[in-house]
């Protein structure tokens, strides 16, 4: 068994188990922490695919920023031990499970229709996911204009947050 496959199996099991923990645990903090574990194992999977940039971004954005936000929300809602989220056993749950299975099947089937695998270890596979090539695409070749405009998104959000929350604006 190759090293790649070993890592894949370990990380895949970790990802699947932690994803299940997210929805099966009753305590929201445990769910949130399982989600962190899930994100970390996904980042590991990206690494085995030579997608270093994706792995780093996954850690920074999901495991870092978004999870901090989730934990903050849980903290602010102040869920005590008694107020653990009630698990609803209703027709709604069945519909939800059914819908997600249909969506999952549709996506898996759709992906198999368009799979265009790049041979493992080929030069393209090695280069594409590197931070250098992503940086080149962003700054020098294709995406420089949209990339610069993204700064307006961040600026607009910052200005908006100030306008909507600052006390006694003038």
């Amino acid at each position: 068994m190759s090293l790649d496959l070993t890592f894949f199996i370990i990380l895949a099991i970790m990802a699947a188990v932690s994803a299940l923990m997210v929805i099966l645990r009753k305590n929201p903090i445990t769910s949130a922490m399982s989600l962190v574990l899930h994100f970390v194992s996904l980042a590991g999977l990206y690494l085995t695919l030579h997608a270093q940039f994706m792995a780093v971004i996954q850690m920074l954005v999901y495991a870092g920023a978004i999870m901090v936000l989730v934990v903050f929300v849980i903290m602010l809602l102040n869920l005590g031990r008694e107020e653990k989220m009630a698990v609803r056993q209703s027709a709604r749950a069945a519909i939800g499970i059914g819908a997600s299975m249909v969506l999952g099947a549709l996506l898996i089937w759709g992906l198999t229709q368009v799979m265009r695998p790049v041979a493992a270890g080929s030069s393209q596979a090695m280069v594409n996911g590197q931070i250098a090539s992503v940086g080149k695409a962003l700054f020098s070749t294709a995406y420089v204009f949209p990339f610069e405009m993204v700064s307006l998104v961040l600026l607009a959000a910052a200005v908006g947050a100030v306008v909507l929350t600052k006390r006694n604006l003038k």
Partner: peptide
């Protein structure tokens, strides 16, 4: 860009 400005 447009949407975020609109929300505010």
């Amino acid at each position: 860009v447009m949407s975020i400005c609109f929300y505010v």
